[in-house]
Amino acid sequence: MDPRADILPLVLDDVSFEINGMRLIKDLSCTFEAGPRTAIIGPNGAGKSLFLRLCHGLLTPSAGTIRWAGPDGADPVAAQAMVFQRPIMLRRSVAANVDFALKLRNHGKPDRTAIIDEVLGRCGLRRLKDNPARVLSFGEQQKLALARAWALKPQVLFLDEPTASLDPAATHAVEEIVQAIHHEGTRIIMTTHDLGQARRLADEIIFLHRGRMLEHAPTETFFTEPKNDLAQAFVKGELLWWKLGKDNRRAGGYEVDKAPRRRN
């Protein structure tokens, strides 16, 4: 398979996901084209992480299809990467963590050394390269997780609340890295709890609530005039979930807004 062939667009068609009969993702359809950065937002339990894992292929949908609609010959597994909310560090040195990922993609030794040096440098971890990864601070670990993903030069990078437990300085550093990865042409699809971050990093917003996609709009539009009333309340920071939640049947009736495609 040709690792350089485009794997995008990613097409989700009527996707549902259930565990023990509980439907956690409901009839979700959308398309991710190459280009813009997407932030998936919504309250806890909305299904943001599940949605990301379904897209990345870590979970299999109970109904519906998820397909990489790029040309034949593209290798979707090799062309995507994911950074998790809690960085998962191998019990090895910083450099060896990146090296492990590169070995899995069959890079030669000189090639790997060069890439490791480059990504660690760009993520500000070069001086720590021989340290054990698990004694790094949480922020440094997350930067290493990003460096490891970056080393793979993925076409699509999934980020699951990458700054959820970081302080503002570390959050800023992580956001800079995400931007840099994006500037090299990687499609960013991330979840976040931080509305400011969604504004800063995303070109389009997907709003999830109780497993349904209630809105999919350009960032600007979403924050100025959200169509969905739950999204309106969420943007305003109102804590209306438990009230509105009782009547969540209602939410299902909303037309999902198809976002106009910019940038491509």
Partner: peptide, 12 residues
């Protein structure tokens, strides 16, 4: 339990 998702994500 700790590594599974990362390993699968990396395609190991």
């Amino acid at each position: 339990r700790e590594y599974e998702e990362q390993m699968r994500s990396l395609g190991a």
